[in-house]
C-alpha cells in the first residue's frame, strides 16, 4: 500500500500506531494516520528538507506512535491516575502495616513451634515479610490499574473524603528526651546484664568459676538474637522520638518487637532452656527439691513477661489511637 511519498519509516510508524488500537477501529484510523503523516512530511518538505529528512523530521514531530494511538482511543498513559492514586496509597499503607507484621510474626511463631533454631526463625520472619509485602504491593496495584481502565465513567474516588478524616493535631511538640533517655538506658543496662551475668554470679562451681544464670549453651543461638533485638528496640525508641508521636505503624512495629522478644523467651523458659541447670542446682533450697521451686517460680516469671509485653503493645495502640491521623 505504500505510495512513493511514504517510505518504510512511515509504514512502520503506521503499523506501530495501529497496534495500540482495537481491531474494530483500525481500518477506520489507518487512513487517518496515513493522511496525517503524508501532510506532516509535505509540511517539512516545504521547509526545504530532503525527502528522507522530511519524513524523519515529521515522525519526530508526531512523537511516539503508542502515545498517538492512546490519544485516539482515550487510553490512560499512567498506571494509576489522580482519581484513584490517594485511595491506592492509603489502602496499600494500611494493608502493609497490618498484614505484613501479622504474617511475619505468624511465620516466626510457626517456625519456632516446629523447633526451628534462631537463624531459621529470623529467616522465616524476614522472607515472609518481604514476600507478603511484595505480593501486597503487586496485587493491590494490579486491582487499581484494572479499576483505572475499567471505570472510565466513574469520576469520583472510591472513598469520598470527608472532614472527619482530618488528622488530629499533634499534641505538644516532639516527645521529650525524658522518655527516650530512660528507655535507652534501660535497654543498654539490660544488654550489659546479659553479658555481665555470664562472668559474674552469686554462685561459683567447684573450680571457683561463676555459674551464669542463663544457659551458656544459648550463646551460640538465642542470646545473640536477644542482643540484636535489644539494638532494634533502641532503634525503635529513637524512631519514636524522631516521629514525635505514636502512629499505627509504630504501634504495629512495637507489637512485632514485643512478639519477637516474648515468644522465644517464653518458649525457652518453659522448655527449661533459658535458665542454666547448673545455676538451679546451686541454689540452696532448704529440704524441698529444685523442680518444685522452679515449677512455682517459672510460671510467675512467664506471666510477668506476657503481662509486660501485652501492656506495652496495647499501650502503643492506645497512644497511636489518641494521636491518630
Amino acid at each position: 500500500m505504500s505510495t512513493p511519498s511514504t517510505g518504510t519509516l512511515s509504514e512502520r510508524y503506521i503499523w506501530a500506531a495501529s497496534r495500540g488500537i482495537p481491531e474494530k477501529q483500525r481500518a477506520e484510523l489507518e487512513p487517518e494516520f496515513r493522511e496525517l503523516i503524508a501532510d506532516s512530511i509535505e509540511a517539512q518538505r516545504a521547509n526545504g528538507l530532503s525527502e528522507r529528512d522530511a519524513e524523519h523530521a515529521a515522525l519526530v514531530e508526531l512523537g511516539d506512535p503508542a502515545r498517538l494511538a492512546a490519544r485516539y482511543t482515550d487510553r490512560p498513559l499512567h498506571l494509576i491516575g489522580p482519581r484513584y492514586y490517594l485511595d491506592w496509597l492509603r489502602l496499600l499503607k494500611l494493608l502493609l502495616a497490618i498484614v505484613v507484621p501479622i504474617a511475619a510474626a505468624a511465620a516466626g511463631v510457626a517456625r519456632l513451634l516446629a523447633g526451628g533454631q534462631v537463624g531459621d526463625v529470623v529467616a522465616a520472619v524476614a522472607t515472609t515479610a518481604i514476600g507478603v509485602g511484595v505480593h501486597l504491593c503487586f496485587w493491590v496495584t494490579l486491582v487499581f490499574v484494572l479499576i483505572e481502565r475499567q471505570g472510565a465513567n466513574r469520576s469520583r474516588p472510591l472513598l469520598e473524603w470527608t472532614p472527619d478524616m482530618l488528622p488530629q493535631l499533634p499534641s505538644g511538640n516532639r516527645r521529650s528526651l525524658g522518655e527516650l533517655v530512660p528507655t535507652l538506658v534501660f535497654l543498654a543496662v539490660f544488654a550489659a546484664w546479659i553479658v555481665w551475668q555470664h562472668f559474674n554470679s552469686f554462685f561459683t562451681d567447684a573450680a571457683g568459676d561463676p555459674i551464669p544464670l542463663l544457659s551458656p549453651a544459648l550463646w551460640s543461638s538465642w542470646l545473640p538474637y536477644f542482643l540484636a533485638l535489644i539494638v532494634l528496640e533502641m532503634g525503635f525508641a529513637l524512631w519514636l522520638y524522631l516521629r514525635g508521636r505514636w502512629t499505627l505503624t509504630l504501634a504495629l512495629v512495637n507489637l512485632l518487637l514485643n512478639l519477637a522478644f516474648t515468644v522465644p523467651a517464653l518458649w525457652l523458659l518453659l522448655t527449661g532452656q533459658l535458665i542454666n541447670p547448673a545455676f538451679e542446682a546451686a541454689v540452696p533450697v532448704d529440704g524441698s527439691n529444685v523442680a518444685a521451686v522452679s515449677g512455682a517460680v517459672y510460671p510467675i516469671i512467664a506471666i510477668a513477661l506476657v503481662g509486660f509485653a501485652l501492656w506495652d503493645a496495647v499501650d502503643g495502640f492506645v497512644r497511636a489511637w489518641r494521636a491518630r491521623e
Partner: peptide
C-alpha cells in the same frame, strides 16, 4: 482537512500540534 486547519490555527496563535 486536518493539516490545513492546523496551519491556520498555528498562524493565528492557537498553539496545537498535529498529534493533538
Amino acid at each position: 482537512y486536518g493539516y490545513a486547519l492546523l496551519e491556520t490555527l498555528n498562524a493565528r496563535g492557537f498553539a496545537v500540534d498535529a498529534g493533538t
